[in-house]
Design a protein around this nucleic acid. Structure first.
Lengths: 256, 256
DNA sequence: ACCTGAACACCGTTCAAGT
DNA sequence: ACCTGAACACCGTTCAAGT
């Protein structure tokens, strides 16, 4: 858990790595008397075994803290207080680690589904789950989106979408297209929210006054709607577009 | 132009850089007789001046050839046959170079617009322009999408979309939302096509048999529609989703 | 089986020196 | 004003050595 938000020390690059809080015993003190060794060591002195799971979680923590471009094997290693090369006992290389990150985040998608609910509501819930993931792991998102997933974790949203489309009465090819349209919208929304979030992280309110310097002849609408554009009710924006898609799909389902 | 698709030599990393095809004159031969110097040197001997434009184009060439993760200042420099540090006379750092790439690609968007055409057709044309950009610069796309643009190049699509929405009769806030929905779909589609393209580049036909290993209880629809899913008529998929959005917008415009 | 340090071939960027 | 090489603090990964 604490690995998900690594200590600030991991974000500063220059200072030398502090010596780990391990029992620094030059000669290993063999317990000749049985003292139930699992209770012998005090609280956090035992370092949990290095594992692929822990490595992936640490990577996600670093990505969320400093952005995906700041992720390095070496930083993951120091965050876990091991040597770099130890990671390679559990992960073949950095690309595989990023795939692990993608899969881990994709598995956090909340795909709870009530098959007895009307299909438009089920479709909405599916797309909303993507939006929630984008909020929970904003900076890991680009990693997820740039690693296609033909693993179960990656195909689960597709399965749900196809199930919903079938419930709506669409034939196979139409179901596939409806699924792709919904997921394209989900992905596009995720990207947009990510950009908005990064922009706010870097500046206060970014676009506001940059609109002022635009050529009024070329950008009449942008300038006229500057205040509407500066406002970012991502929730309402998202629901508006989702509503468009669902409405059109209902129309299409009724015609079939 | 030739920089847009750099020679294969730029993609192999290990071999030493071949000495440039420059006139290797240890002592510079000063032309004491006037021979119209701009014609004196044979064909490609004159190296064009290093410029921000040339640097950005070379970067795009490398990205399209080897992917964005393979872009490095050093590779750009050798592609242009200059020292690395020479680049820094025209570009402050790598981040700025990537912003240049994003802007250059965004400027290639074909935003031709016929204000007398019916607005649904104008809206379609706008979203299709994004799709075309994704086909022309597939691998530069992630760079474009991950650098928000409050420059004119980045706001031009928004301006067009708002103009179309106004022509449809939407009020300001609704126009902004309609624009965001359309652009979200455009972006989502671009991401999907990119993933499909990368998948095909790496394997022959990727998903086809990976579906076979899925748990039939959890993935009944994916398995049943495996052949439809394997087929990727990105054109038709794209138009299907676009049609949904436009249809719903027309409905909404008629109600207002 | 797991961990590790040294080494190698890369990075981006600062600095001081050249023209 | 523009170009450059050396140097620095980083990278990912191979290899050989330890337990």
């Amino acid at each position: 858990m604490s690995e998900a938000t690594p200590p600030a020390a991991a974000t500063t690059r220059d200072e030398p790595r502090p010596s780990p809080p391990e029992p620094v015993a030059p000669v290993r003190p063999e317990p000749v008397v049985s003292v139930r060794p699992e209770q012998a060591v005090p609280e956090q002195a035992v370092r949990p075994a290095l594992t692929r799971e822990r490595i992936v979680r640490a990577a996600i923590g670093l990505i969320e803290a400093d952005g995906p471009e700041a992720l390095s094997m070496r930083r993951v290693a120091t965050a876990l207080d091991v040597a770099v090369m130890s990671l390679y006992n559990h992960v073949p290389n950095k690309k595989a680690l990023l795939e692990g990150v993608a899969e881990h985040v994709a598995n956090r998608l909340d795909l709870a589904d009530d098959p007895s609910a009307p299909w438009p509501e089920r479709a909405r819930a599916l797309v909303r789950a993507h939006r929630k993931m984008a909020r929970d792991f904003p900076r890991s998102l680009t990693v997820v989106l740039s690693h296609k997933v033909d693993t179960p974790a990656g195909l689960r949203p597709a399965e749900r979408a196809l199930a919903v489309a079938a419930a709506a009465g669409f034939d196979g090819p139409t179901s596939v297209r409806a699924m792709r349209a919904l997921l394209a919208y989900a992905v596009g929304t995720q990207m947009r929210e990510l950009r908005v979030a990064e922009a706010f992280a870097h500046l206060g309110t970014p676009a506001a006054d940059s609109f002022a310097r635009l050529d009024p002849d070329e950008f009449p609408h942008v300038i006229a709607l500057a205040s509407e554009l500066a406002e970012n009710d991502t929730e309402a924006d998202f629901e508006f577009g989702l509503d468009l898609l669902i409405t059109a799909l209902q129309l299409r389902a009724a015609r079939a």
